[in-house]
Design a protein around this nucleic acid. Structure first.
Length: 417
RNA sequence: GGAGGGAUGGCAGAGCGGACGAAUGCACUGGUCUUGAAAACCAGCGGGCCCUCGCGGGUCCCGGGGGUUCGAAUCCCCCUCCCUCCGCCA
């Protein structure tokens, strides 16, 4: 949730929201509602003060005077009811509108949409397409089964099988080990969450269409463990000095992929269910930008260790998603497509999500909202996609990246004879 | 899934319609005492929002949301969670 006071007072903040596609008219409507809410609140509180005083008097009054005083207080009560209704109406308007305003883009974020990113760094050399793209190769190796998956579960589902499963767990274990070394607390996060959690983490109402609903129980399947990790300090007032708090969450992730018909339909590049190791940090307001650089560094370290060629970009304002103020993407070279495709991403949400989560830090001069950040450590399925093309040899064998070998006990995986 | 019992400040725990934002203890902070510490004593010791340059003031919050009442931590309804017993289960 945005900072209403800042939206009112800071023009650059407001401009940042508009750069992300927020409707300027809606923002003005929100600001007008909020101004009206404040004035109604003051009036309401004055009435409440009168009513409270009147009631207290009744408690102290002589029994003889009570009846008259109760009648007088009853008069106030009806006024109060009207004012309460007026307040509820204007507050409801503010609450409704405020959730629709995205977190303003930070000043350093470029304008524009998907194509308008800022290229920061290109690492490693691109290679030519291997004999088989990942989908063909996955089927060839017996690693990806989609025929029955489609019949049983529908499109965009796959069975992962054979040595690919060992690679999957090796990636998870290797990543977790690395993150523990960086001071992260490992977490296996619940995937089903309540609606309030989705709202507080910043996913509802804007991304509701992307989320699977378990309506009978009022639960939602989260698209990333970020949701549950954000909830780890929901409502907490943290002591200064306890941050940063860093968590490495593992979970399966579920996405409806609405509106992506016909896009990335082959193999497992874009599926409804995948596993992911996610980094999540709670920091104070002063250190979140440094933290973002640290998360970015870990992502680059992981890609470097896997020897995947990639480019680092700063995502443009229009492509940030509602809660991020700034986002880096690491796009890895996908040889079969001759293009860089997104593998990992890290964002600074500033206090946008913490405001709803009510995650605060006790400070010398009052309490302040925490900042939250997240970053992909390893999107397992998609990492396998890239590995299947980069580690694929001319003879069809698969050379396991060196860093993973201790974690799966595999070195070279031979094709079926 | 069935039957009961609960949810109060950092923790423990009173209060069960009227001066209660809430006793008391512990923890914590400052002070007195002490060579120093402990003990003892004194004081302080929530959160959100609004108004105010500030001092300060107001309001809301006793799991969450509604309701009754002049007045609710206290009474009623719904929800969530926890505990005990039974059933089921990896």
């Amino acid at each position: 949730m945005i900072d209403l006071r800042k939206l009112r007072e800071d023009d650059e903040y407001k401009a940042g929201a508009i750069r992300k596609g927020a409707d300027a008219a809606v923002i003005e409507e929100l600001l007008a509602s909020e101004a009206s809410r404040r004035s109604v609140q003051t009036e309401l509180e004055q009435l409440q003060a009168q009513a409270n005083a009147a009631s207290k008097e009744i408690g102290r009054a002589d029994p003889a005077e009570r009846e008259a005083k109760i009648a007088a207080a009853g008069e106030l009560k009806s006024q109060l009811k009207d004012k309460e209704a007026a307040y509820a109406e204007v507050a409801g308007k503010v609450d409704e509108l405020v959730l629709t305003i995205p977190n303003p883009a930070a000043p350093q974020v470029p304008d524009g949409g998907e194509e308008d990113f800022e290229l920061i760094e290109v690492v490693g050399d691109t290679i030519d397409a291997p004999p088989m793209d990942h989908a063909t190769y996955g089927e060839y190796m017996g690693w990806i089964e989609t025929d029955h998956a489609v019949q049983n579960m529908g499109s965009r589902f796959a069975y992962l099988m054979g040595a690919a499963v060992q690679l999957e767990f090796a990636l998870v274990q290797w990543t977790m080990t690395k993150l523990v070394g960086h001071g992260f607390t490992p977490v296996v996060a619940p995937v089903l969450v309540r609606e309030e959690m989705m709202v507080d983490a910043g996913f509802f109402p804007t991304d509701r269409h992307q989320v699977y609903t378990v309506s009978e129980d009022g639960l939602f399947l989260s698209g990333t463990s970020e949701v549950a990790l954000a909830g780890l300090h929901r409502g907490d007032l943290l002591d200064a000095g306890t941050t940063p708090l860093r968590y490495a969450g593992f979970s399966s992730c579920f996405r409806r992929e609405a509106g992506t018909y016909g896009k990335d339909t082959r193999g497992i590049f874009r599926v409804h269910q995948f596993d992911k190791v996610e980094m999540f940090s709670f920091t104070d307001a002063e250190s979140s930008w440094d933290e973002l650089e640290m998360l970015r560094g870990i992502e680059q370290e992981i890609l470097g260790d896997l020897q995947l060629p990639y480019r680092l970009i700063r995502v443009a304002a229009g492509d940030l998603g509602a809660p991020a103020a700034m986002k880096y993407d690491c796009e890895v070279w996908l040889p079969s497509e001759g293009a860089y495709r997104e593998l990992t991403s890290t964002s600074n949400y500033l206090d946008y999500s913490a405001r709803r989560l009510k995650t605060r830090i006790r400070g010398e001069n009052g309490n302040e909202l925490a900042h939250t950040l997240n970053g992909t450590a390893c999107a397992v399925g998609r990492t396998l996609v890239f590995l299947m093309e980069h580690c694929q040899q001319a003879d069809g064998s698969f050379v396991v990246p060196e860093v993973l070998r201790p974690f799966c006990g595999l070195d070279v995986i031979l094709p079926p004879s």
